[in-house]
Design a protein around this nucleic acid. Structure first.
Lengths: 338, 338
DNA sequence: TTTGGCACTCGCCGCGGCTGAGTGCCAGGG
DNA sequence: CCCTGGCACTCAGCCGCGGCGAGTGCCAAA
């Protein structure tokens, strides 16, 4: 177990390094933080911290830099989430308050988060399986062609074409529509397949085939494929780390374009509260020198999706966590009002 | 007017520079292209070309580099669009062929274009005002709350909430829905406001207010605000120009995040065929060192939107133009089949 | 108009020395 | 036992230097 002062030294190292982006030495530390001890003592402490793997030197005779393990300790034990300033909160409220529909909410949230944290923002659309059904609509576009529209309580709208094996009359459509709605409105999407499993049985034999095709294409595609969408923004912020540029930024941009990767990443954060994944804790190769701060959000009590930011491991964790959490809360509020 | 050989020299310079990314000198030119003249002659020609502003030297005693004006001449007079290889065409077809719906088509197109050109791809969603109405749907979500869903012939679906001043009965909704559909199905969106202007008049006085609110919120928002959307991809390709990195890439990423800017850019390209804007021809400041190759696409004869790529002025114009044109054609085909 | 020759320019590269921040170690003192 | 000041050592980064070579412009001859 590390002594109180050594933890304090680690905290100081993290703070200074985040601020200056340069390896920090013992002398600078004692000057910038009033540690009440001499540089020599700090040196000894740093030697111990290095021994334990919390910090490292880029090369001999340079200052120290926190390791992933060091950041982890910092985040877990040494840092508090920094609340936003009143001005920032007002900015959030006025910016998100003017949203028109779900697409707009998501788009604005991404911009806002990128701006507040000066990092790359990622916002997942409210997940279907965790939302409830507000309305189902069936439209006949052509004799054997239907369009199915789903509306969720979070305002998300999904539609899909369905090609029927045989023409399907208007009255049958109305019938199916009514039955679908009466069965599943207010239910969670995850429950829908179960709830409508036997729906085809109650139709005339010659219509049964069509109904079951509609139902299966429908729920398969909606639940499985279109389930997860997300929007990212603020990629220009990546250029702020001029460091070892092309090498660092390339794999990150590539990873960000792979929405599947990001969704998996967000999905792995099981904690419904805030999750911070640091450096190599991220499974994906392109993101091993970045940290991901994510949190669930949703209208009312439950989280229906996640949002967060991706930035260098050398980031301002307290500030970022504060911004992410605050934005998540306001978005939840906006969705609930909808 | 430049002599034939001087044009040939310019073409050779552009080709070599695009290939090597390094200023090209007179000797290298005569070696790599069989110009049948000596380096000294080429030097004289280059002096003239520089005089005329087609090429420039980064610094004394270095090779020459094409200017924007040089690229312009190259594109206009010296280059042919390079058709794709059979393999590439097959790739396009199989990749786009599997698309499910419009979102999917657009997403796949972006990926495809980015991959083919190894540059940043931009695809605009089919514009509403240039599409025709396939179907209009009105749903009652709550007594005084409607949802309006528009489906276009290109498969695009737009929805919007409408808060009514007073409750609106089911039969009235059905009535309005039927009248709307009978009036505007098959018509262009741009015509819709005109076509339904007098629709409210035919309703009972007490419903008139609601109907007109529905119509106005509706068409205003849809036509004006949600008109233009686009998707971009392949930003990781920006990292291929390691050159003066952070400075170059930053403003481009910023510009790409401003969809409004890109839409304006695409909109300015009046030519329904292919348009190439080189360097400073792009009004936006962040894009003055990039070129934009864009082309309209659409189902059937008319262009309903644009797609293109953004890359460094030093790009393979013939190849890029070939890829952009080919992709646009296939996308049009896919949309027409829908 | 083209060509070979020639002197000149100047960015790039590798070398070597200097500097200074930072370290590790040690002996002395609370 | 822990802290402290002192001291020698290390090494990345910076600067200036000289040589190299690709490339140029000019000129006189064909």
């Amino acid at each position: 177990m590390l002594s109180e002062r050594r933890l304090e030294v680690l905290r100081a190292i993290v703070q200074d390094y985040v601020g200056t982006e340069e390896p920090v030495g013992s002398k600078a530390l004692t000057e910038r933080h009033n540690l009440q001890v001499s540089p020599a003592t700090v040196r000894n402490d740093m030697a111990v911290l290095e021994e334990e793997g919390y910090i490292a030197q880029p090369h001999t005779s340079a200052g120290r830099v926190p390791t992933d393990k060091g950041y982890r300790l910092f985040v877990d034990k040494l840092a508090d989430v920094k609340p936003l300033s009143a001005a920032e909160r007002r900015a959030i409220q006025s910016f998100l308050g003017a949203s028109l529909d779900l697409d707009d909410v998501v788009a604005r949230t991404v911009r806002l988060l990128a701006q507040l944290t000066r990092q790359v923002a990622v916002v997942q659309y409210p997940s279907l399986s965790r939302s409830t059904v507000r309305h189902v609509e069936l439209l006949s576009l052509a004799p054997a062609r239907l369009m199915l529209v789903l509306i969720t309580d979070t305002g998300r709208v999904e539609q899909r074409m369905v090609d029927c094996p045989a023409p399907f009359g208007e009255t049958s459509i109305a019938d199916l529509r009514a039955r679908l709605n009466s069965r599943i409105v207010g239910e969670r999407f995850a429950e829908v397949p179960r709830l409508v499993a036997d729906l085809a049985d109650s139709f005339e034999p010659e219509e049964r085939g069509t109904v079951s095709v509609v139902l299966s294409t429908l729920f398969e595609t909606l639940v499985e494929e279109k389930e997860e969408r997300l929007m990212i923004g603020g990629t220009a912020n990546l250029t702020r780390f001029a460091q070892d540029f092309p090498l660092t930024i390339r794999p990150v941009l590539e990873a960000l374009e792979e929405h599947v990767v990001l969704l998996k990443l967000l999905g792995e954060a099981k904690d419904p509260g805030m999750t911070v994944r640091i450096g190599h804790e991220n499974a994906h190769e392109g993101l091993t020198s970045t940290s991901v701060v994510s949190v669930g959000y949703g209208s009312g009590g439950e989280a229906v999706a996640k949002l967060g930011v991706v930035g260098p491991t050398r980031m301002d964790y307290p500030g970022t966590m504060g911004a992410v959490r605050a934005v998540a809360r306001y978005v939840g509020q906006i969705l609930a009002e909808n």
